[in-house]
């Protein structure tokens, strides 16, 4: 009996390592999004500002565009928020928001307070569209070209450096 108790910590720890390991290898595949170079998925989800208005892929009309996944519970999103505001001011590119598993009121408050960089935000409460997109977490940003094809994806905060390295090249093409 005592021997079993002595081995228990080891077994628990090995199990933990295995879980982390599977996750790590899964994440490697996941980050190579299968969606790159495929068209943006179809959806039909309510708008954040107007719950009665149903948005679909057709509403993302001005291309090329950025789709930015955000939420009020996501601290990193607040860090990138000012950059998106700048982008809206200084670039022709339109930004569409995907409000991810969030509370509507909190989200609207935040946009009112800190400014709204988005043409509109899709209110993806249960994360359905996010699953279709293979979203890994907020914040995350997708670039869609003029044909509605996803060309680039960035997981994490987007700032000037990321912008120039990953996204700006598509605008010059």
């Amino acid at each position: 009996m005592n021997k079993i108790i002595d081995i228990a910590p080891l077994i628990i720890f090995v199990a933990l390592i295995l879980v982390l390991l599977t996750f790590l290898s899964e994440k490697e595949d996941q980050l190579e999004s299968v969606l790159i170079d495929s068209t943006f998925p179809e959806f039909s989800i309510a708008s954040l500002k107007d719950p009665k208005r149903n948005l679909s892929k057709k509403d993302i009309s001005e291309l090329p565009a950025l789709i930015n996944v955000w939420a009020t519970w996501c601290i990193a999103c607040r860090i990138e928020h000012p950059f998106l505001m700048d982008l809206k001011k200084n670039s022709v590119l339109k930004i569409y928001g995907l409000n991810y598993k969030d509370e509507r009121e909190k989200a609207l408050d935040l946009l009112k307070r800190d400014g709204d960089p988005y043409e509109f935000s899709i209110y993806d409460f249960d994360g359905r569209l996010a699953i279709d997109l293979g979203v890994y977490g907020a914040p995350e940003t997708f670039f869609i070209d003029e044909n509605g094809v996803i060309r680039e994806r960035h997981v994490g905060v987007i700032d000037k450096r990321v912008w120039e390295e990953k996204f700006a090249i598509y605008l010059n093409e």
Binding site: I17, L20, L21, F23, L24, K27, E28, L31, C74, I75, A76, I79, Y136, G137, A138, P139, V155, G156, V157
Partner: peptide, 22 residues
């Protein structure tokens, strides 16, 4: 350092590093 959790402490994400630390 492995980037399996996103947070304000953004380090350069690299799964290979994660594997090494693990």
């Amino acid at each position: 350092r492995s980037g399996i959790l996103t947070s304000v402490h953004a380090f350069a994400l690299d799964p290979e590093r994660g594997l090494f630390i693990l």
